[in-house]
């Protein structure tokens, strides 16, 4: 066997071994760990005279019952958490999606379509978010801690800007909090 052919055989052996290790590993149903949270665009301070609404308890996760805890670190909309952390978690979910569906980019469309994809309507039936998670409203939209549907702005297949309407529950106002992908 000439050296070039021996090299090819060696690479094949390594690939077969790697495949075997992968097959023996955790089920494909388990999401791949996500990347560390990235930075948020600075949240805009609330105007002092604005009445800041209290978080909507319907969309708040009580301690100990957040199914996302094991998946992405902290719980989405968890009591004691912050909206910045919530958006970071959603971004991590999208990263996990991209890891599980390489080359396909983020799920796209309306909030309902993106949420449906994240809750299992996908080729792998992968549930990155349980369909009964408290952050999902009755119409199937992923909501912020005030109960407003998150706004997904699809800049490219892999860059998604995520917006919380903030305490006033109206998107595109001064108290919105925005996750900007790839910000340093």
């Amino acid at each position: 066997m000439n050296p070039a052919r021996a090299g090819v055989v060696a690479i094949m052996v390594v690939l077969v071994l790697a495949w075997g290790v992968w097959r023996a590993g955790p089920s494909r149903e388990a999401p791949i760990p996500t990347q560390p949270a990235r930075n948020l665009a600075p949240a805009i301070a609330h105007p002092p005279n604005r009445i800041v609404a209290a978080p909507n308890s319907e969309f708040i996760v009580e301690p100990g019952r957040d199914p996302l805890t094991d998946l992405v670190g902290e719980g989405l909309n968890a009591i004691g958490g912050t909206v910045q952390r919530d958006l970071s978690i959603v971004s991590d979910l999208l990263d996990a999606w991209q890891t599980n569906f390489p080359g396909q980019g983020n799920p796209v469309g309306l909030n309902t379509e993106i949420t449906a994809a994240l809750t299992g309507r996908n080729a792998l039936r992968l549930e990155l978010v349980p369909a009964d998670h408290p952050a999902i409203n009755a119409t199937g939209e992923l909501c912020d801690r005030w109960g407003s549907p998150l706004v997904f702005h699809q800049i490219s297949g892999t860059h998604m800007e995520i917006r919380s309407a903030g305490p006033d529950r109206r998107p595109y106002t001064d108290d919105d909090v925005i996750w900007v992908p790839g910000s340093p």
Binding site: G105, N106, V108, G109, I155, S156, G157
Partner: peptide, 9 residues
């Protein structure tokens, strides 16, 4: 079309 609704795509 892949990535419908995404600007760049």
């Amino acid at each position: 079309p892949p990535q419908l609704f995404s600007h760049n795509d």
